[in-house]
Nucleic acid binder design. Sequence first.
DNA 1: TTGAGGCTTGCACGTTTGTGCATGTTTGTC
DNA 2: GACAAACATGCACAAACGTGCAAGCCTCAA
Lengths: 258, 258
Amino acid sequence: MANLPILPEERHRLIRQRLEAQGRVLAVDLARDLNISEDTIRRDLRELAALGHCQRVYGGALRLSPASGDLQTRQRQNPEGKALVARRAVGLVQPGQVLFLDAGSTNRAIAEALPDHADLTVITNAPDIALALAWRPGFTVIQVGGLLNPSVGGTLGARAVREVADYAADLCFVGVCAVSAEAGLRCFALEDAEFKRAVIAASRAVAVAVTAEKVGTAASFHVADLATIDHLIVGGDVPDAALAPLLDAGLAILQAAA
Amino acid sequence: MANLPILPEERHRLIRQRLEAQGRVLAVDLARDLNISEDTIRRDLRELAALGHCQRVYGGALRLSPASGDLQTRQRQNPEGKALVARRAVGLVQPGQVLFLDAGSTNRAIAEALPDHADLTVITNAPDIALALAWRPGFTVIQVGGLLNPSVGGTLGARAVREVADYAADLCFVGVCAVSAEAGLRCFALEDAEFKRAVIAASRAVAVAVTAEKVGTAASFHVADLATIDHLIVGGDVPDAALAPLLDAGLAILQAAA
DNA sequence: TTGAGGCTTGCACGTTTGTGCATGTTTGTC
DNA sequence: GACAAACATGCACAAACGTGCAAGCCTCAA
């Protein structure tokens, strides 16, 4: 299968795809997978870096972070943890499904972990998630319109809520700022909470993915009770003590590998 | 079976078919399969690329737009020229106005050139423009929802058109792929043209900003006549000969510094 | 019928581009 | 400080390329 000729330009696109999807590429891997010498790969990476498409590093290349304020800083916090949770979360996704992806850095990680060529339709209120998926093979992307909230990184408000009601998803991933057995799902802004409720109402199944630091904490605004959730995905580094009350509440929990 | 003559037009259609089906074509393969010299194939591919039907690459050609890389690529092309045009264009903007910014790399440059703290409301169908402005001081950003078109880099289609009709802008910047006195404003995709028309209809004034390479050229789909435009901003490097027919058409033209 | 003019095509030529290998250097790690 | 991996660079070769030119074909008018 290997020996069909691959055009240089195709190779560049493929490398950029992989960069976008995985955040990084290794020269050795690319050389092996594309059946081409490492020299050529290195030349490619140098070129792509010169064009501003990636950051060249020793051993391969990294995706450059998209510039967007607040969200960007959150994106930088604990990316490995988010990637682990994300990998566990995408296990819930079936080919051909319609998904809803709420704004947020963990959901961004989930978007990146979604498989190509799975004929997925992704509805999202987050422009960065929409952009990240738009060009990937096998994705149909629907952007929810409305007023863009800079600190949340997605559209919110009456218009966005109304638009969400027009859609119906098989599964939604709702980003939350805090989860606890006592207070349920919570977030930091009223409009954000309203929007998430609309998303939940428009979805057949509800999944929530959170990293360890959010478990057992609270925030100002109530989004939904735990009973609403079908799947809770948590980081592998959540202590059993923090998990116990959630298990007691009758929740099925998927825990990412530590 | 080979020796019946194939008309050039037939050949072009066949190449485009193959491009559509497989995403790419190799010059050698086409030459062998069509029993014709590689020279002729290369000429064909050059022609098709000039008409915007494919991207010519070393070794063959690729289908356009499977990657948003396209947008990113366009972003990298002639950024200085775009910045100059953009700086001239923002001179049209008054504090407190509601602007519409269409998707496109030149409009992205305009977004970046807009002044902070000017209490501007920007409506856009392009997630990247929305993200770029969202966190900046003095901006209210409204994202137009709908199906995200990866090659255009913005939402298009019936939903987007309907949403645009809900808004009213003081001024819109419409991105076009080609401008000429004979053919008016044109672009490469039908849905894109429809959307731009909706934007124009929802705006009190219409501005079009283009870099030099687009002046005097044509593209497949008609957007609007020149008479629709209130302001045309062009690069400083447009030759007078190319500008003359537009001036003859009675258009007021703002030319960026060379 | 004939010949001029336009168009397409294939060939020959020199040029450019992509690739792998060999070389010596830099970088990261133990 | 020692070692291997990753690297940049120069070189050679083949493939792909653009261009000019001439042959073949068609149309149209004389």
